[in-house]
Design a protein around this nucleic acid. Structure first.
Lengths: 151, 151
DNA sequence: TTACAAAATTTGTATGTACAAATGTAGTGT
DNA sequence: ACACTACATTTGTACATACAAATTTTGTAA
């Protein structure tokens, strides 16, 4: 479906406007689908991202700064995100002994199990969008996106 | 900057994952920039979208359903968005005389003036991202995005 | 050691978003 | 008229987000 039909555009769009809208809308479709996956697990996208960052640390605890800089959407509110994960016992939080300003956040076994359950669903999600494009088209899309956002 | 550096990936990403992340991140850069533009005007992106939809009506009032279906991100909360615009006197809201379930929302002159002020800034915003790509590349990007989100 | 600035995180406040339930209105069949 | 269903919008609640101000700890220079 063309973007013009989706937003029921009354007048013609410039190529520039079209591209921007297309990008915004596509991202929207993707997040919606992803939220559907997470919903039964009662996780928000951002909570999921934090868990994945923590797993990526491979045992090494992460402090708030580290988590924040690895998130795609820089929320200023890592504290409250971690609070929610703590309540669900998916992470632990302790004061860093070397620098008491810092917090050490670590994923628990319960958190790791949850991610393991989600892993195959995430792969399906990723592949689903990519399946209509060839490898070349995907590479191309990546390059164009990178070029687009850099100015 | 490559997406791997941005999210400081520890391991290699599949092409599928890369593309998805690239898309999410690019959209994020765009919204951030757009919010910067709107900030001095004390408008949120969604408030701005509603105003533009109303202007697109060219005098014909829009009811809540119409507004909702034209928004890119379907917020369930058009009511509260319109509330905020009402407070700023950028729109009017009246009960539809033919069908008292419906509301007629219309943009005010103050709202139109605000949009007029914003128009050139919005064009600059759109062009800024497009400037590094040729017309062909932009067309290509549009096609790839459309293909990507359809499955 | 004291004072001060910087770093890391937390809190407050306003706003935005998702989803379900509630409200008010219209239309339809009996 | 009455009950019933669908429609259009609003409200409640929990959570997410943006941004600024506050808090705690550290490092450093007088």
């Amino acid at each position: 479906m063309k973007i013009e039909e989706i937003i029921k555009a009354t007048s013609d769009l410039t190529l520039e406007k079209r591209t921007l809208l297309n990008l915004m809308y596509t991202q929207n479709v993707i997040s919606d689908k992803f939220n559907e996956i997470l919903k039964p697990f009662e996780l928000s996208t951002e909570q999921f991202n934090v868990l994945r960052i923590l797993r990526g640390q491979k045992g090494k605890p992460a402090n708030m700064c580290v988590i924040q800089e690895r998130m795609i959407a820089k929320t200023s509110n890592t504290t409250r995100l971690v609070d929610k994960l703590l309540l669900k016992e998916l992470v632990t939080r302790e004061v860093c002994p070397e620098n008491r300003r810092k917090m050490e956040i670590e994923i628990t076994d319960k958190g790791l199990d949850l991610l393991k359950e989600l892993d195959p669903l995430v792969v399906i999600h990723e592949d689903r969008f990519a399946q209509n494009l060839t490898k070349e088209e995907l590479e191309n899309l990546n390059n164009l996106l990178e070029k687009f956002r850099t100015f």
